[in-house]
Structure formats: structure tokens, C-alpha cells
């Protein structure tokens, strides 16, 4: 097991390097390969029709006039050790990990991420807890009572869940409970540290609307996995031993049925950590998703790149965790 963990961690670190290189290439190498001049590249970082001095400053700050490997080195060094930007009146130090510097807003990206991450994390973690509990339990009950009214009802609702667009559910909830009908919530983000009760209270609607989609999906996946597992030979063996059905289900069925969900959950959760774009915008939360949207609409490349890199980082880390959990559950993985 120890050897397995070391191998996986090592592979994850390598993967992170690759991911950073690819992200770098997308933003720095591709435009040049496509024949864009460094002047026009630099111009993108500061907005329309800038004066030549500003462009020069950007080129200098980003090192666009240097060879590509120098630029990559610069980029990696920034991530590990931080970087200095002298742009505009006051020079800025972008401390490690430096995810870039937005010339348009005159701010480093990392502090923004730090400020916004708790909002996104609160959303993601709370919603994940809700959807795992509701989705999985619904799926299990549906599978065990296959064909019953309960099963049909649950699967009908879950079909709605997977087909209704996220913003519809969110807006509908807002309309019902906040704007038009019941004026229960005036949803705004309150930091957990400031007031945990208010934090949770204000997150209920976003959590529910986000979790609805995933619950529906997870209920269907759990149901399918459970049905498949309960038809396995080893379940028949468990029954042949004379085990009571409850034990057959819990001890022999659930564990195998839920294992594949771990992979899917790891991916879903990692993507959410990088920003719940739609939920954040429906509820006007200033999380990472909103930040990414800001980067895209303002064509502010360092922001887009920073959030992309961060999301990639979450995916790699979650994948690593998934691998480790998998190995803990399935001896065939860790012993092969």
C-alpha cells in the first residue's frame, strides 16, 4: 500500500507539471504559433487601443520578448517563488503562488482567488453533502423497491433534475422564496467565520438548487449500480450462507455498488471547486466562477489562466484522492 501511495503521489506531481505546461502553452505558445505578434499579444492584456508605452511595459513584465523556455521558467518561478510586477504607478509584488497579474485591474490574481475561494468552497462542500446523502439514499431505495410507486416517483423527479437547466432551478427557487412569493431569504453570502448560522442560512437556496441536479444524477447512478451489484454471483453466495437480507445489502451490496461513484464524485467535486459558474451568477455570489466569468467577459487573460490552472490543480488532487480511496476499498487495485 505504501508503495502504491508513493507511486500515485509521484504521478500526480508529474501530472501537475504537465498541466501547468499545457496551460502555459495555451496562453503563451499558441497565439505565437498562430502568427500573432508579441505587440498584439501584449495589447490583449490591457484592453483596446492602448498607448505603446503601456504595451512595452506589459511585454517587459511578461517577458514576451524573451525565448519561450525563459518565459516558461518565469511562469513556473512565479508559481513557486512569486514574481514582481512593475506596472503603472506602484510596483506590485505577486507572492507565491503567483497565478498571474491582471494588468486591467492592477491586481494580482492569487489574492482575488484567496478571497473568493471560501465562497465557492462553501457552495461546493455543502451541496456535495446534500447530494451525496439524498442522491445515494434515493438510489438505493429505488433499486431495492424496483418498479414500485416510490421507484417510479423518484426516477421521474430525478429525470427532471437531470434535464432542467441549473439556472432554471436556481431562479425558480429564488422567485418562490426570495422575490415573489415567500420573502424568506434575501440571499447574500456571509462568511462562515463571521457568522456560521447566517452562513448556512444564506447558502440553503444555492445548495439546494446546485444539489438538485447532482442528486438526480447520483440517484440514477446509485440505482443502476445497486441493481447490477445485487445480481452478482457473490450476492447469491452471501444469501446462500444464510445471511439476513439487510446484511447482504449493506455488507456485500453497497460497498461494490458505490465504489464507481467515487470516481465520478471526485471529478464533479473538483470541477465545482474551480467555480460553480451558474449557481454563483444566479445568486450573485462573488466566487471563483464569477471571477472566471469576469475574466472572460473583460478578456482579462491572467484571470482566466489563473482560474483554469486552479481548476486543473483541483482535478489532479481529487483524482489522486480518488485513487487512494479506491485502493483502500478494492484490494485488487492495491495488490496488483
Amino acid at each position: 500500500m505504501a508503495a502504491y501511495i508513493i507511486r500515485r503521489v509521484f504521478a500526480a506531481v508529474l501530472l501537475l507539471l504537465v498541466v501547468s505546461a499545457v496551460t502555459f502553452a495555451i496562453f503563451y505558445l499558441l497565439p505565437r504559433a498562430a502568427g500573432q505578434s508579441i505587440q498584439s499579444m501584449a495589447a490583449q492584456y490591457v484592453g483596446k487601443s492602448p498607448d505603446p508605452d503601456v504595451i512595452k511595459a506589459v511585454i517587459k513584465n511578461l517577458g514576451l520578448d524573451q525565448p519561450i523556455y525563459e518565459q516558461y521558467w518565469h511562469f513556473i518561478k512565479g508559481l513557486v517563488a512569486g514574481a514582481n510586477y512593475s506596472f503603472g504607478p506602484d510596483p506590485a509584488h505577486c507572492s507565491a503562488p503567483c497565478f498571474g497579474y491582471s494588468f486591467k485591474t492592477h491586481t494580482a490574481v492569487w489574492p482575488q482567488i484567496q478571497q473568493r475561494a471560501p465562497i465557492t468552497f462553501s457552495l461546493a462542500i455543502g451541496a456535495a453533502v446534500i447530494w451525496l446523502i439524498t442522491g445515494i439514499s434515493t438510489g438505493i431505495l429505488s433499486a431495492l423497491k424496483r418498479g414500485s410507486i416510490w421507484d417510479r416517483l423518484a426516477m421521474g423527479i430525478s429525470l427532471m433534475g437531470v434535464s432542467l437547466p441549473m439556472f432554471f432551478t436556481g431562479l425558480a427557487l429564488l422567485a418562490l422564496f426570495s422575490f415573489n412569493w415567500l420573502h424568506i431569504w434575501n440571499v447574500h453570502y456571509v462568511s462562515f467565520v463571521d457568522n456560521p448560522a447566517q452562513w448556512a442560512w444564506n447558502l440553503i437556496l444555492p445548495w439546494v438548487s446546485l444539489a438538485f441536479l447532482y442528486s438526480a444524477l447520483y440517484a440514477r447512478l446509485t440505482r443502476a449500480g445497486m441493481l447490477e451489484t445485487m445480481g452478482e454471483d457473490y450476492i447469491r453466495t452471501a444469501r446462500a450462507k444464510g445471511l439476513v437480507e439487510r446484511k447482504v445489502i449493506v455488507k456485500h451490496g453497497l460497498r461494490s455498488a458505490l465504489t464507481p461513484l467515487i470516481t465520478i464524485f471526485g471529478m464533479d467535486f473538483a470541477l465545482l471547486l474551480g467555480g460553480a459558474v451558474i449557481t454563483e451568477s444566479v445568486f450573485s455570489f462573488q466566487g471563483l466562477g464569477a471571477y472566471a466569468i469576469q475574466g472572460v467577459t473583460d478578456n482579462d487573460l491572467p484571470i482566466v489562466m489563473g482560474v483554469t490552472l486552479l481548476t486543473a490543480f483541483f482535478i489532479v488532487v481529487c483524482n489522486l484522492l480518488v485513487d487512494l480511496v479506491y485502493a483502500a476499498i478494492d484490494p485488487r487495485v492495491r495488490l496488483s
Binding site: R236, T237, R239, G242, S256
Partner: peptide, 19 residues
Amino acid sequence: RGQKMAMIFQDPLSALHPY
């Protein structure tokens, strides 16, 4: 079941729980 009557199955790999 399992006490007075017991059964052996055809494919022992799938009949044993992998975990």
C-alpha cells in the same frame, strides 16, 4: 441455508466477494 444445506457455485471467482 448455509447450515443444513449449502451450495458451491460454478465460477468461484465471481462467487467470492472481491473486497
